[in-house]
């Protein structure tokens, strides 16, 4: 009858029960696995094709493994393929994309977190109406405001630079990211903010000392959304980058889709894979947050 703590209890092995493994379970599992394989097919194809020699590709047999593994496609894709007149590979696009990404992150995260914080935790009478407007703005298709934005950036003299692309990204993602931050900050217990208000009362100090340190998770979620969003964007880069600031996707499209001359599928696939790699790495490394980001993106009032 003595009370031994559960965690200190000696562990005895019992023979595992003869579990009736249900036939339906096995069928379900096989079905799920087959769908998973089907979903993986494009990734598989892009990888094997990028390592094949052009000679092997022209034989057909898209699913075969490379007979000889070669980095030729990768090398050419990285530093030789042509986009329009210039032939510097997707490398140039890679660096442009990074140049676009950094200010985009700063603008969108900075703007959205502060706006979301002000709307969620400070008593502002018209906050509800403003949120509603932001909610609607978050769904306005880019094409609807594209032309005025081109005219504005041209007036500002930044059209055709990476700054234009970065700023447009920051502006366009603001409503959606603000909603995410606001939904997150809304759940901070009001007692905490009230206590902080009594202690210091300063908008910026509460943000810096209390709210920001609590935002770790949501900032990672938003970073993932911004990084994948900006990196994978094509149309904004195409429209605002001009010839001088073409991000990686635009270079890729120029080489593969509108490119002239002999088609080199291995080079095409290597270029596509190089372009897809950064967001894929982010996804596989931080998948948990990625899922959170999606759920955060699903509208929750």
């Amino acid at each position: 009858m003595a009370n031994i703590d559960i965690s200190e209890r000696e562990f005895k092995h019992y023979p595992p029960k003869k579990k009736k493994i249900k036939g339906s379970s096995i069928i379900t599992f096989i079905f799920l696995a087959m769908i998973a394989l089907a979903v993986l097919v494009p990734l598989y194809v892009i990888i094997v094709t990028s390592f094949k020699t052009l000679d092997q590709i022209t034989l057909g047999r898209i699913f075969d493994l490379p007979t000889t593994w070669t980095f030729e496609g990768w090398n050419k894709a990285w530093s030789e393929v042509c986009s329009g007149m210039t032939c510097n590979g997707v490398k140039a696009g890679f660096f442009t994309s990074i140049k676009i990404l950094i200010p985009s992150i700063a603008i969108s995260v900075g703007l959205a977190s502060i706006t979301g914080y002000a709307l969620a935790l400070w008593k502002i009478k018209w906050a509800g109406s403003f949120l509603f407007v932001l909610f609607i703005c978050a769904f306005v298709p880019f094409q609807v405001i594209m032309i005025p934005l081109v005219l504005i950036t041209a007036k500002l003299g930044i059209y055709g630079t990476f700054w234009a692309v970065a700023i447009v990204h920051g502006v366009l993602s603001m409503p959606f990211l603000t909603l995410i931050f606001r939904n997150f900050y809304k759940d901070i217990p009001p007692e905490l903010i009230n206590a902080a208000l009594m202690d210091s009362g300063s908008f910026w100090r509460i943000f810096g000392e209390i709210v920001l340190p609590m935002s770790g998770n949501i900032i990672i979620v938003v970073l993932i959304l911004v990084i994948t969003g900006v990196w994978n964007d094509f149309l904004i880069g195409l429209t605002f980058g001009g010839f001088g600031a073409q991000p990686m996707t635009v270079i890729l499209a120029n080489t593969v889709i509108t490119g002239t001359g002999a088609v080199r599928y291995n080079v095409d696939m290597a270029a596509a894979l190089l372009t897809a790699l950064p967001p894929l790495i982010v996804y596989f490394a931080l998948g948990k947050f990625f899922v959170q980001g999606i759920s955060a993106g699903a509208i929750k009032g």
């Binding site: 994978n232 964007d233 890729l252 499209a253 897809a276 967001p279 982010v282 596989f284």
Partner: peptide, 10 residues
């Protein structure tokens, strides 16, 4: 879910 991390262009 991984296809979602791939751009439409790719």
């Amino acid at each position: 879910l991984y296809p979602l991390a791939v751009s439409f262009i790719v």
